Amino acid sequence: MSGTTVVILIVLALVALAVISARGRAANRQKDLDDAKADARRWVERLGGQVMNLTGTDLASQQAIADAAERYTAAGSQMEQATTTEQCRLVTKTALEGLYYIRAARTAMGIDPGPELPVDHEAQRAGKVTEDRRVSVEGHDYEASPVPGQRTPHYYPGGRVAGRPVPQGWYSEPWWKPALVAGAWGVGSVLLFSMMFSGMAGIAGAAAWESGYDAGQEDAIGDQGDAGGDYGGDSGGGDYGGGDWGGGDIGGGFDF
């Protein structure tokens, strides 16, 4: 066998190995995608079954079911367009959020909330409402509670909205929704958050929240140079104490 023939055979063998390897990787990717689609579809179908068969008995449960139905519609639309494993994971996340609303609705009705759901670590880091709060901001009343009620019928399962953590709990109104729709928080949001959650265990302070940090990450603010110092100085008796917050920029109302 000539040297040229040997070289040709080696090249052909390498090409064959490359083709087999590429086909193997493609098959693995397709299997991962099929598995991700099946998992996402399972959660969407589970959510759909609950949305179709559960009827709220009070304002809180009815609102939670309505929110779950919104997630079901969104997850179904995402499922139709999903072509990658990452997109399938987003479908699963949306469906699971809907199922958290279903659990909240069932809890509000006083019935078994159903089997436990996978832990949402983002929601855990956001904290949760641990006590009843009622605050008035520029003449508008807001309430938060760890339990549903006629005055707090709006549930949020916890998580991040427009880069900032929103604690799990029941609220008098969905104060986070404008940021969810717009993708950014209005100028009055920090004051509202500060008044609503100040001193509540497991929830970030207002300065940390404004910077997008979760509870326990306040020390990270010190790494931002003058940010921590400026905030501390202003809050002591400057803009925060009686200037812009007290009756200046915020005085004209809130743009959440």
Rank of each mutant, 00 (worst) to 15 (best):
A204C: 00
D67L: 13
S77F: 11
E70Y: 09
G229K: 14
G127M: 03
S77K: 10
R164A: 05
A66Q: 12
G188W: 01
T73V: 15
E86A: 08
D34M: 00
A26H: 04
S198I: 00
G149F: 04
L17N: 01
A74W: 13
T4S: 12
G241R: 10
G246F: 07
P115V: 04
R125Y: 08
G199D: 14
S172P: 06
T83S: 15
V19Y: 12
G49T: 11
M196G: 03
A104P: 15
L59G: 03
M196K: 00
F254E: 09
G163A: 02
D112T: 10
L192C: 06
G247P: 00
D67V: 02
D39T: 02
A38L: 04
T55H: 15
A144P: 08
G212M: 11
G205C: 04
D255F: 03
G233K: 11
Y155I: 00
D223R: 14
G238I: 01
A13F: 14
W170M: 09
F193L: 10
K37T: 02
R71E: 05
G163V: 11
A220R: 14
S211K: 12
V19P: 14
G149R: 08
K93W: 06
L14A: 12
H154V: 13
D141Y: 08
D244A: 09
V51Y: 04
Q87F: 00
A105P: 00
I65V: 14
G110P: 13
L180P: 00
T84N: 08
K31R: 15
A204W: 02
G139H: 04
A184I: 04
L90M: 14
E116M: 10
I250E: 00
S198N: 02
Q30D: 07
G252R: 04
A13S: 15
G149C: 05
F254I: 06
Q87W: 02
G252P: 01
R71Y: 06
P153E: 02
L33A: 08
G237P: 01
D249P: 00
A215P: 03
E131G: 13
A208Q: 01
R133K: 13
A22M: 05
A104F: 05
A108W: 06
T57S: 05
A201K: 05
A38R: 09
G251F: 08
T57V: 08
L180R: 07
G216F: 03
F254H: 07
Q50F: 06
R25D: 03
G149A: 05
D58Y: 03
S235N: 07
Y171I: 10
G246S: 14
Y155W: 05
S61E: 03
G228F: 06
S189N: 04
S77D: 14
G149L: 05
A38C: 00
S189W: 01
R23C: 12
D234A: 14
G49Q: 10
Q62T: 15
G114L: 13
Y155F: 13
A108F: 12
D244I: 06
V51G: 05
A215H: 11
I102V: 15
G183M: 11
S2V: 10
Y72N: 13
R151G: 02
S145P: 12
K93A: 12
A227L: 10
A220L: 15
E138T: 11
G216K: 07
W245Y: 11
A220G: 06
N53I: 01
R151S: 09
M1L: 13
A27Q: 03
Y101S: 03
